[in-house]
Design a protein around this nucleic acid. Sequence first.
DNA 1: CAAAACCTTGCACAGTCTGCAATGTTTACG
DNA 2: CGTAAACATTGCAGACTGTGCAAGGTTTTG
Lengths: 195, 195
Amino acid sequence: MTVSLRERRRQQTARDIQLATLELAVEQGLENVTTEEIAAAAGISTRTFFNYYVNKESAAIGAPPAFGEADKTALREGRGALRDDLKRFLDKHIKILADDDNIVRMVGTVLRSNEKARGILDGFLMMERETLTECLAGRVADVQTAAALASMCTDSIGRAIFLWETGDAATLSAALDIVWAGTLHAAGLMVVPSD
Amino acid sequence: MTVSLRERRRQQTARDIQLATLELAVEQGLENVTTEEIAAAAGISTRTFFNYYVNKESAAIGAPPAFGEADKTALREGRGALRDDLKRFLDKHIKILADDDNIVRMVGTVLRSNEKARGILDGFLMMERETLTECLAGRVADVQTAAALASMCTDSIGRAIFLWETGDAATLSAALDIVWAGTLHAAGLMVVPSD
DNA sequence: CAAAACCTTGCACAGTCTGCAATGTTTACG
DNA sequence: CGTAAACATTGCAGACTGTGCAAGGTTTTG
């Protein structure tokens, strides 16, 4: 087995804490929940809570799925049209998010009102964007171009989640399709010197 | 006069606090600075510090310049090529930032290591992006397209600041030119189905 | 099975942030 | 001008956050 008993328990406790945090946060707003309440709900001591997460905002966010290694390789070495490879890449990722869409929704709720949580997620996204930029750097030569593309990608995912959360799209994948169409259209407007 | 003595003093104190915060933060890192130190450096009591800012991260960020009303109107009613109007809009804004480039630099330092500060700024940028989306909504009809364009704009400013901070561009305006070229190039790649 | 590694917990303590009440300063206006 | 209302500053008490440390328990390793 790849994971020891200890490791599995640790994962489980981390997830228990996250779920306890999110449920309390959705009910009362994260700012009105104390670490003591969270610890009690998760069946651990306050001190142990802080052994898992440095603060309640981190507990709410947990460990978001990173871009898959295989998907990144596919993107780096892809030979299709760039925009199609990118869309495929994002589709893969949004499907992973969809596996835990209940958590995505609760995290979204927290993010809407909690600045600290936004900052924490932002830090994570910044790193993801960075790795994405590196993936693209080989295909587009210019770093600024790669960075712009990477931003378009993470932004599209963010807007797709938002669209789905507000009920304007039935699924995350459908939301991404809508958002992506807008992104492509916007790109077209930036290129063609017309209004 | 448009501002009373009281109002002017308030602005001055707010700025004094921000500068005290940033200077201490650049020296020691914001996490290693206590509100007590900041208050002492700004010549006020700790309690008064919290009358001005809800926390030290907000004090460090202060009140970033918003997009100008006139510039937004110009963008909304512009009749030139969209991408040129956008570039003009961003040029205007980056010039305003350049007026306080010492503060921009210090804030950048803080943002690099402080998650909470990033979240606070992110909330501000989110609102700015929202107003920008509304400005563009009249010109492009589709909301998703407008949102994508707005994201490209705020992202470009962010990357320009980063480029300038790392010394890869002499001025903020020059940095924006470089970043913008990358953004346009990226847009081109998204449109033309080639690699 | 014993030692190493890791986990949980309590406790003490430094720091953050709010509400409240006292006191002083500025503004508005009769 | 002078007074009442509005606002600013401060201290203090108190709830909450987050860390270091040490004690005691469980899992892993060989």
